[in-house]
């Protein structure tokens, strides 16, 4: 027997199957289809209100599992760090404000203080980001380091680690290494300001390349662990 379903019901079922966790999607959308398919011939405003009330309640209460919340938090955190790094590199590349460059932290390794500069954060509203070009974000040493670090981390994970925590710890260490190595190198070398630029590029771009891959892999690994 072919059951006639309304477009509204088909949309609601599609929404539930798309948004709900896989372990609940089939039975919940089946329940909605069973209940509202029967009432299909009585369609009126009440039918649609009730159908969408039930559907949205399911989405609201069941969509956000701990696993999804964790993934979302991780993705948002990664996105925020990437955005700040992209903006910082853009600022240093295109800003004509000499006050920031003159600060002592560029020569003593404490360049994280740059992220507290009001002039940097004000640059967002000054339209500085519109001057961004892709070549600002290409740095060969950073690319080489990122590729080598990924190969090493994935190889170590395959051979020894085999756990999400182990992978995450090693990957985070590989992300942090360029930053701290650069920081100590600048701190204990007497570099001129024009020599600091390539080091800062390595400190920021290498983590920037690694971060999305590592984040996506951690999310994927946790998802697989959850399904197992």
């Amino acid at each position: 027997m072919k059951i006639q379903t309304s477009r509204s019901l088909r949309t609601a079922v599609w929404l539930l199957q798309t948004l709900l966790p896989s372990r609940l999607a089939e039975e919940v959308s089946g329940d909605v289809e069973e209940e509202f398919g029967e009432l299909c011939t009585l369609q009126g405003p009440e039918y649609h209100i009730n159908l969408w009330q039930q559907t949205l309640s399911c989405v609201g209460k069941l969509m956000m599992t701990k696993q999804r919340l964790y993934s979302l938090t991780l993705a948002l955190g990664c996105g925020a760090i990437l955005f700040v790094l992209i903006a910082a590199i853009n600022f240093l590349s295109v800003s004509d404000d000499p006050s920031v460059i003159e600060h002592g932290y560029w020569l003593n390794g404490n360049m994280h203080l740059f992220f507290g500069e009001s002039v940097f954060w004000q640059s967002f509203s000054n339209g500085l980001l519109s001057q961004m070009t892709w070549d600002m974000y290409v740095d060969l040493p950073s690319v080489i380091y990122a590729v080598a670090a990924l190969v090493a981390v994935f190889a170590a994970d395959k051979r020894w680690l085999r756990s999400v925590q182990g992978f995450a710890l090693l990957a985070l260490a590989s992300i942090a290494l360029p930053y701290f190595a650069g920081m100590f190198y600048i701190k204990f070398s007497s570099l001129a300001l024009n020599e600091v630029g390539p080091v800062v590029a390595f400190m920021w771009l290498a983590p920037m390349y690694l971060l999305p891959v590592v984040t996506a892999t951690i999310i994927k690994k946790r998802h697989q662990l959850h399904l197992a």
Binding site: M1, K2, E26, E27, G30, D31, E34, G37
Partner: peptide, 13 residues
């Protein structure tokens, strides 16, 4: 899981 029927669009209960 079980009891998939036509009225549920073939989805399991």
């Amino acid at each position: 899981l079980g009891g998939a029927t036509a009225e549920r669009g073939g989805k399991a209960k």
